[in-house]
Nucleic acid binder design. Structure first.
Lengths: 196, 196
DNA sequence: GGCGATCTGTAGCGGCTGCTATAGAAAATA
DNA sequence: TATTTTCTATAGCAGCCGCTACAGATCGCC
């Protein structure tokens, strides 16, 4: 029973996410956001609260749409070992193709250390990733497609560490051979033992 | 034959480095730097040029004093396998003890993507780290202390990736078991094959 | 002491920051 | 059509940004 909003909230959030993703949190001004989202500062503040709340909203959406959706897709369509392999392949491919890197990793380094609420959100998502790897490893170890001699928990932790590291390396030195070589060795932990 | 400087350049650079290290490049203002270094803006600009030049200077000093010195120390006092193990142990310990993380990693994510000169500097240092791992691996593979069935180049790349990843994880979720488990699995790539 | 040169402190430049007061535009209800 | 309610646009708040002009302080040299 009043004037409706003149903008598409989803499109606006996508535009804002791209700003934060490209430039980082601090380097993105509210004016930049307004311009990209196609709305003035008052509308922005009215609809999304302040800059920090908007960022949290964008980060949540990003993680749901990218990370969680990807985990679900891989875990439901591929056997566990292939799911792990595909995940790492996708991280390498995306790292090389998209100069923005991964918003989760960017945030873990830029925002989390100075913001307890964001740090908790990031830590939760990292645990979800670790859980994905751990589930795949456990199932794969039981069905014999993954070497069972290593503790699944620690291998999952190394895989998580590896994708973080790949994302960092790619942003300063995006060399395919480097990323692919590292990923290959991380995945070799899944192989059964070979003679020396 | 003129008025000499009233401050200690080394101490001033240390103070500036700490600012950049703690808060990042963008979030450190020239006024913050001046206050920490104990000198006014004109002295700062006269002695070190602008903010970007000062940052480059700090980063260079940091890398010489931390990374390169550490590589030299480990490589000259320890056998290759122990040097690698010690390096990873130190990364884990420092990541848990120092909330500032690693200035090289912070810079790789915050500055390098928007600054070609810094990106090149960072990429060079990453290559030096990879080279350190590669040399240790090659020697260790020859003397039999490191499994020889894996390509040293790719294992070096994974070790490099691992320390980057450990640094990222520690800043958002500094849990000892997580970092230590990941490091342990990365190091297990050096072990000879075990039965499945 | 006087001179020339370098350094330092004050003060301020234009421009940007996150955010908001105020007023006007647009739609649903009566 | 008049009213009510929400949204939007203009303009501007105080405060910070990187940087610098200017004047005064402090030294070596003559």
């Amino acid at each position: 029973m009043a004037r409706p909003r003149a903008f598409d909230e989803t499109a606006a959030l996508d535009a804002a996410t791209d700003c934060f993703w490209r430039s980082g949190y601090a380097a993105t001004s509210v004016r930049d956001l307004g311009a990209a989202m196609g709305l003035g500062a008052p509308s922005l503040y009215n609809a999304f609260g302040d800059k920090h709340a908007l960022f949290t909203r964008c980060l949540d959406r990003y993680l749901d749409g990218n990370m969680r959706a990807r985990i679900r897709r891989l875990e439901s369509t591929l056997p566990p070992r292939a799911a792990i392999e595909r995940f790492l392949e996708e991280v390498v491919a995306r790292s090389l193709a998209d100069p923005r890197g991964c918003l989760l990793v960017n945030t873990a380094l830029e925002v989390a250390p100075h913001d307890a609420a964001i740090a908790e959100l990031v830590a939760d998502r990292l645990s979800e990733l670790e859980g994905f790897f751990h589930r795949c490893l456990s199932v794969g170890q039981r069905d014999g497609t993954i070497a069972a001699r290593r503790p699944a928990r620690d291998v999952a932790r190394l895989l998580l560490t590896t994708i973080m590291g790949l994302r960092v390396l790619a942003r300063a030195h995006p060399e395919p051979a480097l990323l692919k070589g590292a990923a290959r060795q991380a995945l070799s932990l899944l192989d059964p033992a070979a003679p020396d």
